[in-house]
């Protein structure tokens, strides 16, 4: 098997995540989809690391994880505070910016 299959897998997972962001309305699920996209890119980075024989890709994947953790913390806090005020976790309900 050619290791390039890992890249195909990453592409597939990324696409599924992107489609999820567009389709799901629940803010939590939407966030999970974003996490899936990040994971897919991490997989690609790890594969690139193997491709080039250096550890830089893994370091970048590591940083991605850290940033993802930070993002999740803030994002979930936002979801909770929105839920508190609007009693809904649906992103479609937060459309006050519309004219």
């Amino acid at each position: 098997m050619n290791p390039v299959n890992y890249l195909y897998l990453a592409a597939l997972l990324f696409t599924i995540g992107a489609a999820g962001v567009l389709v799901r309305r629940n803010a939590i699920v939407l966030f999970m989809c974003v996490e899936l996209m990040l994971n897919a890119s991490n997989l690609a980075l790890v594969t690139f690391s193997r491709l080039h024989g250096t550890l830089d890709g893994q370091v970048i994947a590591f940083f991605t994880m850290v940033v993802a953790a930070a993002e999740v913390v803030v994002g979930l806090a936002i979801i909770v505070s929105i839920f508190r005020t609007r009693h809904s976790a649906s992103v479609d309900d937060s459309n006050l910016m519309k004219l």
């Binding site: 290791p3 890992y6 897998l9 790890v46 193997r50 893994q58 994947a61 994880m65």
Partner: peptide
């Protein structure tokens, strides 16, 4: 597991 299989044990 994929990461580990590709040599990224720590990750």
């Amino acid at each position: 597991v994929c990461y580990m299989a590709q040599g990224a044990v720590f990750l």
